[in-house]
């Protein structure tokens, strides 16, 4: 498979199948994220960088013996590790005995929201999610450092991306409001079903990317100029951080949402919503800035 475009598409299919597998393993949220990210963002980023680095791959010259050996050893260690594992899905496995039951029993009383995953994500292990948002922020920062926002010459307003496609432009014009609305639905729906700040941010960005693809990035940059995006991402993180720090002012430990309102339940609701909003803004800004940096760059041979 030496045509890297085909490899990128195959990778899209692979991550799609992984998302379907997650669905089957009862992981709705994770399937949602994997589909939005694996098939959507990664494929688009891959394609836009392949545009810059060339589509064809040369046959590697050196012999595959050493890699095979290393892979074999690691694989043997992994299989050795799996021998004592409990079977798939057996309820007696230690995993389901210790920490998890607490989440399932107490989440309704303490949080009052049906989606336990969002409850654990935003409140029980909120610090992990702050770390996760910072990882995304670091990625956006690194791509900004590497490719710079103004790189690749000034945006070419009005240059249509795919030649003359009047039909496509019309349909996309109708679709984009729907996509952005769907993203908003996912953002606010995080507590009741699959969804949340991170997936919503990605869908927002995909909507803008679609606009950029079809109408040429000149127009897209007029709508959301590239200069704002790093600041927007920073703003998203500060929203998250300030919700946490607010608890500090009241003498409660960091990220304790009960201080936000008298009744702790309402406080936690509010906290989770605010936090998800912060993540959504940050992810949207980062994904879009990475796409701009890659697609806006002129091809240097």
């Amino acid at each position: 498979m030496r045509d890297l475009f085909a490899v990128a598409m195959m990778f899209g299919i692979y991550s799609l199948l992984t998302a379907a597998l997650f669905m089957d393993l009862d992981a709705a949220d994770v399937a949602f994220t994997e589909a939005a990210v694996g098939a959507g963002v990664t494929t688009i980023l891959l394609l836009s960088s392949l545009r810059l680095t060339g589509r064809w791959e040369r046959r590697p010259k050196h012999s595959p013996l050493l890699p095979l050996l290393v892979v074999g050893v690691t694989g043997a260690a992994l299989v050795y590790g799996t021998l004592d594992m409990p079977h798939l899905g057996d309820p007696q496995a230690p995993v389901h005995q210790h920490v998890a039951p607490h989440y399932i029993e107490n989440a309704p009383q303490e949080m009052g929201i049906p989606n336990i995953v969002t409850a654990v994500l935003a409140s029980y292990r909120g610090f992990d999610t702050l770390g996760e948002t910072l990882v995304i922020f670091t990625a956006g920062l690194s791509v900004f450092l590497l490719l710079g926002s103004r790189a690749g010459g000034r945006p070419r307003p009005g240059k249509t991306a795919i030649g003359e496609q009047p039909v496509l432009r019309l349909v996309v014009k109708v679709l984009i409001p729907f996509i952005l609305l769907f993203a908003l639905y996912v953002q606010l729906h995080g507590e009741y079903g699959a969804g949340g700040g991170f997936q919503a941010g990605v869908i927002f960005a995909t909507g803008m990317v679609l606009y950029d693809l079809v109408f040429g990035e000149g127009d897209a940059r007029l709508v959301v100029p590239a200069r704002w995006l790093p600041r927007l991402a920073a703003f998203g993180i500060l929203v998250y951080g300030s919700v946490g720090l607010y608890a500090l002012l009241h003498g409660r430990p960091f990220l304790d949402y009960t201080v936000l309102a008298e009744d702790p339940m309402v406080g936690r609701h509010l906290g989770i919503l605010l936090v998800e909003l912060g993540i959504g803004i940050c992810v949207f800004a980062v994904v879009l800035s990475i796409f701009y940096a890659l697609s806006g760059r002129r091809r240097q041979p």
């Binding site: 910072l134 922020f137 920062l141 703003f235 500060l238 951080g241 720090l245 500090l248 430990p253 960091f254």
Partner: peptide, 21 residues
């Protein structure tokens, strides 16, 4: 709050740096 302050300060200072520019 000391253990937290030691890491939260630089963590949140980074976005502030980008914001100020």
């Amino acid at each position: 709050h000391l253990p937290l302050l030691a890491i939260i300060l630089p963590l949140l200072a980074a976005p502030v740096c980008v914001l100020i520019g």
